[in-house]
Write a protein that binds this DNA or RNA. Sequence first.
DNA 1: CAGTGGTCTAGACCACACG
DNA 2: GTGTGGTCTAGACCACTGA
Lengths: 237, 237
Amino acid sequence: MSHFPFQRLQADLAALISKTRAGDRLPSEPDLAKQLGVSRATLREAMRTFETQGLIHRRQGAGTFVVGQVPVMDAGLEMLESLDTMADRLGLEVSVSDLHVDGIPADKDHAAALAVPPSSKVTRVRRVMRADGRPVAYLVDCLPEEVLKPSQLPASFKGSVLDFLIDRGDRLTVSRAAISAIDATAEVAKPLEIQRGDVLLQFTSQLYNSAGKVIDYSSSYFIPGYFHFHVNRRVGG
Amino acid sequence: MSHFPFQRLQADLAALISKTRAGDRLPSEPDLAKQLGVSRATLREAMRTFETQGLIHRRQGAGTFVVGQVPVMDAGLEMLESLDTMADRLGLEVSVSDLHVDGIPADKDHAAALAVPPSSKVTRVRRVMRADGRPVAYLVDCLPEEVLKPSQLPASFKGSVLDFLIDRGDRLTVSRAAISAIDATAEVAKPLEIQRGDVLLQFTSQLYNSAGKVIDYSSSYFIPGYFHFHVNRRVGG
DNA sequence: CAGTGGTCTAGACCACACG
DNA sequence: GTGTGGTCTAGACCACTGA
């Protein structure tokens, strides 16, 4: 028996997953832990890696399922386009769920990013993007109320704030996105159906109009494995 | 007593950390777990969040220390520059440690990225970048042997492959970087002095010369909190 | 309802740092 | 050696799913 349970366990799990048909359920965690000769805690730690890669999906009360080939969205970062538009361009099917639109008072973060007074009203739009029925991104947009009131969004709103603004005729120029990697908090883990502590790619963006004013402050959380973002960087001046 | 130990624990830990002077040691994990009324496993789970944010640093055998204000490297992604150059521009002190240069046979990944035959020789350069003495990034460059032999690197090599190539007169044009978020594997966790499973921002880059040939394939791993990468995205065509 | 994954506990052993 | 963080175990209770 190896003295490094975790490494061996990773290999054993990889073998098990690869020989399980997509969509099928793995044995329950207690059973699997017994089979592989480790405790359930260790097993779960190892499973987190495979969930991050999008190879398995765990559903409380239901089980752990092997996930089939994932549709990957590959996009450059030079251009800003909505995930909807991106999916269209790539010929992928995406859907939106858990759409919530509300008005909230600006907190310090909003006030600084949007250049509005603290406690002024901002419109918040939250939703989950799904590909193949599985959550792949969680998006939160915040806009000053004078740019967008919750009531202005039509019943037919399909989830893309960017596309809505463009269609409405707003003159948008550029978006500045900060890129980071984070642990999922409980708030974003729940809609994305992942675990708190799972790894996410985060974009925090400010969208400018032609007057140079920030009209949208958004946080986007992407589950790794479903997206391939890339950027071309020039060398020298 | 709250029914949500984790949330309360996060708040308690945050309070403890904020009132501890930078550089001081926190109580040991068993002591702290007892103080806060949770098990050590739960405590460690919560601590991971603060370590990701760079607020604390855990050293096996020594203790957990509160980290002072971190020097942040803020950089756009439109231009490719070495971390050395970036640090200079920002007036920050960085150092290189754990420099390893070796020649290895190309694996499938190298062969595909560098467009060289499998098992042909590639030169690999690995090193850790430190700011304020703390590891902040782990960098691995792989170059075909005909571009760079291990013996060609001078003893004075200070860690930047990009700067070396530029100084040598290589005509470089553009770098294509793929951006991802990953769990730290054991291999990168060790040099970065973090835990396996901690979150990292990863850039995987191909550097092109003016002939359109890939001459460097690199993987860069960044600890979140020390870097603010951003990109400006144009709207529309 | 039984069974699943999500969380927490108490305790153990190890490798490592430091005096 | 002593004490630290790193890891693993065995068991418990909970929330949720689905028949």
